[in-house]
Design a protein around this nucleic acid. Structure first.
Length: 538
DNA sequence: AGGTACGCCTCTT
DNA sequence: GGCGTACCT
């Protein structure tokens, strides 16, 4: 919802603009705005049969706008929303309830044959799902459009990108419909861009420096500006009843200090200020300043602005209100569009019907091939894959035999089996840390399908934890350097990711294997692999 | 005057 | 999500 009435309030500072002004520049796109508008054209299809062709009209809508930008030599960088913030859970739940209600009514109307009424209700029932975003991501990939999925809010990710240089992945402006970007003090925002490229531009510096229509932000710094927005009410914190943009503005310009505004409000009998309002407001300010964002360069989570002592105090050590931290591998999986940011599961785990074990062999081959005759021999291979039993903490029994029991993200290295813990489904859950101690190896008995008892070395590591991987790698491969291991790991991961998107089907992937290369596979490849890969189906 | 609650619209042809 | 509007303080 953004900040109610903020755009109207700041109208004097908003000027018409055409997107061609940003020719040659990189411009961030708030994917949600266009997804939402695009979904309007196919709301019924999306509700009833999301897999149908006509349910993909929202993608055409989106791509039209992308092509428009490209036509004007603007480089689009699409930013998607990631997981929802804990503090918005209540709002989210309420919206969900309303949508469910509309959906039920819509289906009812449809059965009664009242299509017009049904469509109207379907429009209220549509919401943008991670799956829809993923469909779009696949198109963006094929069209070579840069994108990133924010760990949490797209707004903060976009605000972060505006702070970077273009050659570091930075953007010059943001195209969105959401006034929250103003609260983040985003330097340049284009609102209401239409299909011809006309929009309304908000420039932060211009707003802070010029007086218009008896409004002046000259005495405002960015902190006060964000503070004003929060006082007026935002998604994270509802405003004190009776306070909107105008009163928030006059209070801030009068006292120029956030705590003084709060004390004044508390003394004023007209308003009822909750006891914890000051606390909540400072926390909200901390969210606008230090939200978790993804840094493409380091491939890990960062804070929008580096955390300082002051804000750490406001947060009272409770960093989780910024959204729970994510490990680099998970954050990257989300950012690059492979993991559903809400469930943390791989998007395409159901689209693949080749068995996990087949997939391990095929990608292992590729990895082994890329390693050549380096110190990691053909016998060592890495594969990361998804299987359907992703929520169980099952350990794969035998890499060459089992497969069916594999869980998401198992890493197989040489003769050892490395297990990744399944990511917590509940985001509030603490990530299991199973960092191996001095001797992470243990013998484990297991029974093969043929009833034989076998003992295998088994190593449990936490793939969420890079340190854990490093310590294991030096133990399991004394001859290889941890860095080499990490390199291999990233090749394996990249291999998996590359092949888990539609650009290469398992069919074409498998058919690239030669008989000879398959023979050299560590555990011997099941003969299945060589029989007509064309039969493999999705 | 300013805030709030409510209903309407966003697309495509 | 935004916007306009009628109604309330």
């Amino acid at each position: 919802m953004g900040i109610p009435n903020l755009l109207r309030f700041l109208k004097p500072f908003i000027e018409p603009v055409h997107i061609k002004k940003y020719a040659g520049k990189r411009v961030g796109i708030d994917a949600y705005s266009w997804l939402h508008k695009g979904a309007y054209s196919c709301s019924m299809e999306l509700c009833m049969d999301p897999k149908s062709g006509s349910a993909r009209r929202y993608i055409s809508y989106f791509m039209h706008h992308i092509n428009l930008l490209r036509h004007y030599k603007v480089v689009p960088v699409v930013v998607f929303d990631g997981g929802s913030m804990p503090c918005k859970a209540a709002t989210d739940k309420e919206r969900h309830r309303k949508r469910e209600l509309s959906l039920a009514l819509a289906k009812e109307k449809l059965e009664q044959g009242n299509t017009t009424a049904a469509i109207d209700l379907f429009r209220k029932a549509v919401h943008i799902t991670p799956s829809m975003a993923y469909q779009l991501i696949q198109t963006l990939r094929s069209e070579d459009v840069e994108f990133v999925v924010a760990p949490y809010e797209a707004d903060s990710q976009l605000a972060y990108l505006t702070t970077l240089d273009p050659d570091q992945g930075g953007i010059a402006a943001v195209v969105t419909e959401d006034s929250d970007l103003i609260a983040y003090c985003c330097p340049a925002i284009i609102f209401k861009m239409d299909r011809f490229g006309n929009g309304e531009e908000f420039i932060m510096e211009r707003t802070l420096k010029t007086d218009k229509a008896s409004l002046s932000f000259r005495c405002f710094d960015k902190k006060l500006f964000t503070g004003m927005c929060i006082f007026a009410g935002c998604d994270f914190l509802p405003s004190v009843s009776g306070i909107g943009t105008k009163r928030a503005y006059s209070l801030i310009s009068k006292y120029k200090n956030i705590n003084r505004v709060i004390s004044t409000l508390k003394l004023d009998k007209r308003y009822s200020v909750p006891d914890d309002y000051a606390d909540s407001l400072w926390k909200t300010l901390a969210v606008f300043n230090h939200a978790r964002v993804y840094d493409v360069k380091s491939k890990s989570l960062k804070h929008l602005k580096p955390l300082d002592e002051q804000y750490l105090n406001y947060l009272d050590g409770d960093l989780d209100i910024l959204g729970p931290p994510l490990s680099p591998s998970i954050a990257r999986g989300i950012a690059e569009g492979h993991l559903n940011p809400v469930t943390l599961e791989a998007f395409d785990q159901y689209s693949r019907t080749i068995s996990p074990i087949e997939f391990i062999h095929t990608s292992a081959f590729k990895v082994a091939n890329q390693c050549g005759s380096q110190e990691m021999t053909q016998k060592s291979y890495i594969a990361i894959f998804s299987s359907r039993e992703s929520k169980e903490n099952v350990i794969v029994n035998d890499i060459s035999n089992g497969g069916q029991k594999c869980q998401k993200g198992i890493l197989a290295l040489g003769t050892f089996i490395l297990q990744k813990h399944s990511p917590p489904v509940d985001c509030n859950e603490v990530e299991p840390k199973n960092i191996p101690e001095n001797n992470p190896f243990k013998k484990r008995k297991f029974t093969t399908d043929q009833g034989q008892e076998m003992v295998k070395n088994e190593l449990l590591i936490d793939l969420h934890d890079e340190k854990s991987i490093l310590s294991c790698s030096s133990l399991s491969q004394p001859s290889s350097h941890p860095k080499k291991f990490m390199e291999l790991l990233s090749i394996g991961q990249a291999e998996y990711e590359r092949n888990s998107v539609v650009t290469e089907t398992p069919v074409s992937f498998c058919s690239s294997l030669t008989e000879e290369s398959v023979k050299s596979m560590p555990n011997g490849v099941s003969s299945k692999r060589q029989k007509k890969p064309e039969e493999v189906q999705y």
